[in-house]
């Protein structure tokens, strides 16, 4: 690994951790379905950056790019399905509040 790649590695890791924290905080604290999905998206962004960083550091850019492309396709489908479910819930509850999701308890 080149010296430059190594100096890059640590600050990137730091910011990836920051992104993870922001995403998890959003997911845990919010009461809104859409905002929960946005938190999830932030987590996926962090993972994408981690993968690309690893590819850069290990000089496996081609492999990692193909992985990231696949990852993006998966992400889109999951988010589309999730948005559909959130819309369905909105139709029943008339709002997007997760505190309404207490029908199922146990």
């Amino acid at each position: 690994m080149s010296a430059q790649a190594l100096t890059l590695f640590w600050p990137f890791c730091l910011f990836i951790v920051v992104l993870f924290v922001i995403g998890f905080y959003c997911l845990l604290v919010t009461f809104n379905l859409i905002r929960a999905l946005i938190g999830l998206e932030l987590l996926i962004k962090a993972v994408t950056l981690l993968l690309v960083l690893v590819g850069y550091v290990t000089a496996h850019e081609a492999l990692v790019q193909s992985l990231v492309i696949t990852l993006i396709v998966m992400e889109v489908v999951i988010i589309a399905v999730a948005a559909g479910i959130a819309l369905g819930l909105h139709r029943h509850n008339k709002n997007l509040d997760t505190r309404q999701l207490r029908n199922l308890k146990g």
């Binding site: 997911l27 379905l33 929960a36 999830l40 999951i78 399905v81 999730a82 479910i85 959130a86 369905g88 819930l89 029943h92 999701l101 029908n103 199922l104």
Partner: peptide
């Protein structure tokens, strides 16, 4: 829908 959303997250 609620179960599905929780499962999804």
């Amino acid at each position: 829908l609620e179960g599905a959303f929780k499962y999804l997250i």
